[in-house]
Amino acid sequence: MTELLQQPWPWYVSGPLIGLVVPLLLLIGSKQFGVSSNLRHACAACMPGRVEFFQYDWKENGLWNLVFIGGTVLGGFLAGWYLNNPEPIDLSQQTVTELQALGITDFKGMMPDGLFSWQNLADPSGIIVLIVGGFFVGFGARYAGGCTSGHAISGLANLQLASLLAVIGFFIGGLIITHFVYPLIL
């Protein structure tokens, strides 16, 4: 049993389980799945300033979601720390070869240690990946009105044209970084 919980799960098992979060939240409290709203709730709670966008009752609107995201941290701890899979991810050889050509050599864990380290914050690559990247996640998610969970999963499942546009945008952005920016900064 422990072994089953330590191993990675194939896409045809994990994909449907992720999809089930949508009806789960609808059934337990008529809530719509969307993670990035929590960044707005956190701003409204901690540093609303005089910005109108953050003047609302975050407890009423978002406390459930902040608790949900707290649960996500716990799930990350259980699955990624306590029941961690010690093996490197079974990536496509093509990706490994291409990343090696960019100078990535460490394929252990969930991310390349060299790029994602405190020391690397002194390097342009670290600043772009960690600080600029994080900024775009927050800014872009609110501008687009949702992230992967709200648009790519809930929104597409509910046949929202807005979500299709957003997902097309996600891919345009991701492809630009992957194919034009990473060769310059790595």
Partner: peptide, 21 residues
């Protein structure tokens, strides 16, 4: 907003390798 915001979010997703969840 969906297209432009989406592109900016895509930048962040590819850089950090992670969306908010």
């Amino acid at each position: 907003r969906y297209l432009l915001g989406g592109v900016l979010f895509g930048f962040g997703w590819a850089l950090t390798g992670a969306c908010p969840g």
